[in-house]
């Protein structure tokens, strides 16, 4: 198990793995998103309370899920960086951050679009929206720290510490925002009771969530490949491949 892990951790092996995996995952992603979005937008019935506008959940929920999932991936990679100084983990963390920030922004934007017809306002200081906004700030801080350190080894370890500090703080922030929200929230806001979601809606939602996740993996693999090339441009295997014209 450990040897396998060690092999995968070398940038060269990962590059080859990514080369093989990325096209297949891209096809899988296209199928999942195609079926999921079609079912969600055309097949799933209209909601009796929210009308058509509920359909934004097929984008909103997967984005929100990914915003957390990607942060957890980054934190896990950061742990690998701190413990084993693994170069590959740093690369994965670096390419994941902008993707995670984009999904966080997408979740906020779609939430705001949904809020306009439902709550009558673009922005409500709802607990989930607020903690998602703070998550976006944390992503931005992480990327800003990465951008301002020139030395690669320092950058890897400093940003890893920040990501891990963030992971300890995210649940605390989430809890405190929930608590703050229950105090400040005016009672006039409509609160939807969580209806148990109907299978015809749940199935496309799950397909979309899976599709978005695979999409993240495709983007991560592609960006990781190009970053590996950039960082290892002086190593012999990259030079060999470049000479043979198969990068």
């Amino acid at each position: 198990m450990f040897r396998w892990f060690h092999k995968l951790a070398s940038t060269r092996n990962f590059y080859r793995l990514a080369e093989i995996l990325a096209p297949w995952l891209a096809i899988l992603c296209a199928i999942l998103l195609g079926v999921g979005l079609f079912q969600g937008l055309f097949v799933a019935p209209t909601d009796y309370e929210q009308g058509e506008s509920y359909r934004i959940i097929f984008v909103h929920v997967p984005s929100a899920w990914l915003s957390l999932f990607i942060y957890m991936t980054m934190a896990f990679c950061s742990l690998l960086v701190i413990v084993w100084k693994m170069k590959l983990a740093d690369i994965v963390a670096e390419v994941s951050a902008p993707v995670g920030a984009s999904f966080t922004f997408l979740a906020l934007a779609t939430g705001s679009l949904w809020g306009k017809p439902m709550w009558g306002t673009w922005w409500e200081w709802d607990a989930r929206l607020t903690s998602e906004l703070i998550l976006l700030f944390i992503y931005i801080g992480y990327m800003a720290l990465r951008a301002s350190i020139d030395n690669p080894a320092t950058r890897a370890r400093a940003s890893a510490i920040l990501a891990l500090v963030g992971v300890v703080n995210i649940p605390i922030i989430k809890f405190s925002v929930d608590w703050w929200n229950t105090l400040h929230q005016p009672a006039s806001i409509m609160k939807f009771d969580k209806p148990s979601i109907h299978p015809t809606m749940l199935q496309p939602l799950l397909l979309c969530a899976l599709g978005f996740t695979v999409f993240y993996f495709v983007v991560m693999l592609l960006n990781t490949r190009s970053l590996i090339l950039e960082r290892e441009s002086k190593s012999s295997w990259v030079q060999e491949r470049a000479a043979e014209g198969r990068l």
């Binding site: 703080n169 922030i173 925002v177």
Partner: peptide, 14 residues
Amino acid sequence: ALLVLPLFIPVLIF
């Protein structure tokens, strides 16, 4: 400021 302000939020709230 960018790094620590989000982390200060719980303290501010309470």
